[in-house]
């Protein structure tokens, strides 16, 4: 474990706590894309299936369970506790294309034709684009609550921090996971516009508003 990976994982945990905190204190899911949350649940379930048969470490085991459970809890909060029709109207990104595209790419680029490997590759492609419905929603409304922007920032930071982690692992361990690195860079690039606006407005104490 290196510092980039630990910092990335902490940032990922923070993003989830920020989101749950926001939903529970405001008792509202306004501005949060259900579709993005649904995609993350699918990402975690398809990627962490191996928690049942592959032991890496207690850390990895606990984190995998946490990510699966918290994503399902968020889905539950959004669907059953604080559901509103206004939110659904703005959440219109056609995720079927993301799912289908990730499926096709996983079948082409998987390292091995086993169910778990194809699902693992699928989860990487899907994660790289899972934030798009959320960013699309932000684009439509033109502004966001500060907590929502902190959530998106922490989530983007997590993948951005994995990039130096992969450099480190390549030089220190000779390890290079082509699929993870490629999809991770794509994901970080998708966040780049958002990072720019976040830096220019939210970091300076202004509201998040798109020009």
């Amino acid at each position: 474990m290196n510092v980039f990976r630990i910092a990335g994982d902490i940032s990922h945990l923070a993003s989830i706590f920020i989101l749950i905190h926001q939903i529970t204190i405001t008792k509202s899911v306004q501005g949060i894309s259900f579709k993005t949350q649904l995609l993350y649940s699918i990402v975690f379930i398809t990627r962490y299936l191996d928690v049942t048969f592959r032991w890496v470490s207690l850390y990895i085991f606990a984190m995998k369970l946490f990510f699966i459970a918290s994503s399902l809890y968020i889905i539950f909060l959004m669907r059953n506790r604080f559901r509103t029709s206004e939110v659904t109207k703005l959440d219109t990104f056609p995720i079927v294309y993301l799912l289908a595209g990730s499926g096709v790419l996983a079948l082409i680029f998987t390292y091995d034709y086993s169910i778990t490997e194809v699902l693992w590759a699928f989860s990487l492609f899907l994660e790289s684009v899972a934030i798009l419905p959320q960013l699309f929603m932000l684009q439509r409304t033109g502004q966001a609550k500060t907590l929502t922007t902190h959530y998106i920032f922490a989530l983007g930071l997590y993948r951005a921090l994995y990039i130096p982690n992969w450099f480190y692992r390549y030089f220190a361990e000779g390890r290079f996971d082509t699929l993870a690195v490629f999809t991770g860079i794509v994901q970080t690039l998708i966040y780049s516009d958002f990072f720019w606006v976040y830096y220019n407005r939210v970091m300076k104490g202004l509201n998040f508003e798109l020009p």
């Binding site: 990627r47 890496v56 693992w120 390890r175």
Partner: peptide, 10 residues
């Protein structure tokens, strides 16, 4: 690359 099949990251 055999170690690519061992997924030890989140």
């Amino acid at each position: 690359n055999a170690n690519q099949l061992f997924h030890d990251e989140l």
